[in-house]
Design a protein around this nucleic acid. Structure first.
Length: 656
DNA sequence: GTAGGGTTAG
């Protein structure tokens, strides 16, 4: 462009054609500023724009450019008498619709004397760009009613809208329409159709179409990969992925995201490593999936690495990536870093606020979470049901009962959000843990939907804290009806009986557990060291450094004894023989992970552990002491919240 | 010799 510009300036008498060429080139290279400046130059030299000028000029207009110059150029169009030219009108409609000013686009559209397919297409794609997919479908229907023949591009756009809406019925209608219209099958239409069927989970139809295609490209294959991954059939997705004749960053990301969606986070990171060894450049989409995997695994080192990598390779840090970073840092127990990102963001959406509120809540900063919620409201961002999960969790963890009740009510009355079963579980947790067992129980009976095992498990947990045997029986009975094999329910109920010295009942429960061979869901702890995630289950000896780990465990046991620790075996499954009980808890996964952390890192390193279940009482006490004995900061994330151990204390203040 | 509308991943 520099050279072209240079030559252009040398011309004694550039004609309108050449002016237009220059404007077109600047537009095509996405520099609306340069294109506009060229146009102004043209006017200054006394040349009049013609019907070609505006389509070129407006093509590169981004949202900002429209705000800056849109209306003024629109005025020029009218002034130069070009407003009735179809190309110019289309360019204007396209510009307004795609930049979000649907009203102006609509206005121009309705006042157009002759509406060709291209103009309809601009309206449909404009609505697509603004995520108004129902409108896209509606416009398509109008178009057909008015006997305007859709073009291939119409079909592609409207099918894409069906896919986004997951509207299979309408998608099938459009498909029929295409067949009847005699439109020649082309790759892009077929891709759009395969994608639509896959998005709507009709993989049979997607495959049938795919099989029948004469040619396929990377998009056709990726659509299938995404479809199977979304259905949880990740093996099938991987199979197709391996069969693809060529892959690109999108297909790699689809696969990585597939693993994330099926909760296979380590596999997601492995896939990401493969992607890099095969020299594919990740982009900001890839990074969102990778960061989500890091968040779930508590893989802070890897998460940090992603941030540095993005900076070094100039990958766009958009609002999606920043939201994922906030989530990653919060779920790795580094809520402060999450806050730094939050405060630096120029643009925040609903997800940003929600991620930050949830992050504060699970890290034990209940009050801060609620303050942030108020700020969110003041920033006119409307909370959704997930935001309220965060808000209610904040109240539950901080023991803010009346605030919780108030917010729960406000959620319904002020925001019109219907509470789901998880919101009720939060309320029952909040009330029960704070000792309002009766009200917690009443909540379970007044719920407008069926109770599930999480509801009864929550109530049972609260009964354990407060030693209420009667209600515990009731909760356990309900829970076991839904999940007869739930070992934790037996353990908790038995503990409560033991607390009340009802030994007959304890024996009876043990009998049932032995007879039915009931097992507890295995606890699993993960710890990341030097960018690698290590997993431990109780009594695990599969780790290559197992020997050292158990030696360290022995040392830890001695140190604990000196510090006056007595093992608390109350949460061990009943079938375990008494002499094995101490070992059983001493070989808990979080203690193994802790031992591994101690032998494999410097004393200054914070040990970060992620556990799949709630932490057990004994491990909580032991790690508190260990944090003092070894002067180590330990952060444990369990199923519901964080425990930050330091100097023999935990941030949960033992309220959990 | 200049022109219009579109598809895949968060």
């Amino acid at each position: 462009m520099n050279y072209a510009q240079h030559l252009f300036e040398e011309m004694p008498n550039p004609d309108p054609f050449l002016w237009n060429s220059m404007i077109r080139s600047y537009s095509n290279s996405n520099s609306p500023e340069a294109a506009v400046s060229m146009y102004i130059h043209m006017l200054a030299r006394g040349f009049e724009p013609n019907v070609y000028t505006f389509p070129f000029l407006l093509k590169a207009f981004t949202r900002d450019a429209v705000i800056a110059w849109g209306d003024e150029l629109h005025a020029h169009v009218l002034k130069f008498g070009l407003g009735s030219n179809a190309h110019v009108r289309n360019a204007l409609i396209h510009m307004y619709a795609c930049s979000g000013d649907i009203e102006t686009a609509q206005h121009l559209f309705e006042r157009s004397y002759k509406r060709e397919a291209v103009m309809w297409n601009a309206m449909i794609s404009g609505h697509n760009r603004n995520k108004q997919f129902e409108m896209s479908c509606k416009i398509f229907v109008d178009m057909v009613k008015q006997c305007v023949s859709p073009t291939a591009i119409t079909y592609i756009s409207v099918i894409s809208a069906c896919a986004k809406l997951r509207d299979l019925d309408f998608g099938i209608q459009v498909h029929k329409h295409i067949k009847e219209s005699g439109t020649l099958p082309n790759l892009k239409i077929e891709n759009a159709l395969v994608d639509m069927y896959a998005e709507c989970c009709d993989m049979d139809a997607a495959l049938r179409l795919f099989e029948g295609m004469k040619t396929r490209d990377v998009i056709s294959w990726t659509a299938l990969v995404v479809g199977f991954a979304r259905l949880g059939q990740i093996d099938r997705a991987k199979q197709l992925f391996n069969q693809m004749p060529e892959r690109d960053a999108v297909s790699w990301t689809a696969m990585i995201d597939g693993y994330v969606r099926t909760n296979q986070f380590k596999e997601a990171l492995e896939m990401f490593r493969d992607m890099q060894t095969q020299d594919f450049r990740p982009d900001e989409f890839t990074m969102v999936s990778v960061l989500t995997a890091c968040a779930q695994l508590g893989a802070l080192e890897m998460g940090n690495w992603v941030r540095v990598y993005m900076d070094r390779h100039k990958i766009k840090m958009d609002v999606f990536v920043q939201n994922a970073l906030i989530d990653m840092y919060s779920k790795c127990g580094r809520v402060k870093t999450g806050l730094e990102i939050f405060h630096k963001m120029h643009e925040r959406d609903k997800f940003t606020w929600t991620a930050m509120i949830v992050g504060l809540a699970i890290n034990g900063h209940g009050e801060d979470a609620l303050q942030l919620f108020n700020k969110m409201l003041r920033a006119s961002e409307s909370p959704d049901e997930v935001t309220f999960i965060g808000v209610l969790t904040a109240c539950a963890h901080a023991g803010l009962v009346s605030k919780g009740r108030e917010l729960f009510l406000g959620m319904i009355t002020t925001y019109g959000i219907k509470p789901n079963v998880t919101h009720y579980a939060c309320m029952i947790d909040l009330l029960g843990r704070a000792g309002h067992l009766k009200e917690a129980f009443e909540t379970t009976t007044n719920m407008p939907m069926r109770t599930n095992s999480a509801i009864w498990g929550t109530l049972l947990g609260a009964c354990r804290v407060h030693g209420n045997a009667e209600m515990a029986e009731l909760a356990a009975k309900n829970l076991l009806e839904l999940e007869p094999e739930n070992g934790t329910a037996y353990v908790q109920l038995s503990n409560i009986y033991a607390k009340c010295k009802r030994w007959d009942e304890v024996r009876r429960l043990r009998q049932i557990v032995m007879e039915r061979g009931i097992k507890k869901e295995p606890g699993c702890s993960m710890i990341e060291m030097n960018g690698e995630v290590h997993e431990f289950v109780a009594g695990d000896r599969s780790h290559p450094r197992s020997e050292e780990i158990y030696t360290k465990l022995g040392e830890m046991a001695k140190e604990l004894k000196i510090a006056g620790y007595v093992p608390d075996t109350s949460e061990v499954l009943l079938e375990t023989a008494d002499d094995e009980r101490e070992n059983a808890i001493f070989w808990h996964s979080e203690k193994l992970a802790m031992a591994y952390g101690l032998i494999s890192s410097d004393p200054s390193v914070v040990i970060r552990i992620v556990k799949n279940l709630r932490m057990c009482l004994d491990c909580h006490r032991a790690i508190k002491l260990l944090s003092k004995i070894y002067e180590r900061e330990v952060v444990v994330r369990d199923r519901t919240r964080f425990h930050h151990f330091r100097h023999g204390l935990c941030t949960c203040r033992d309220y959990w």
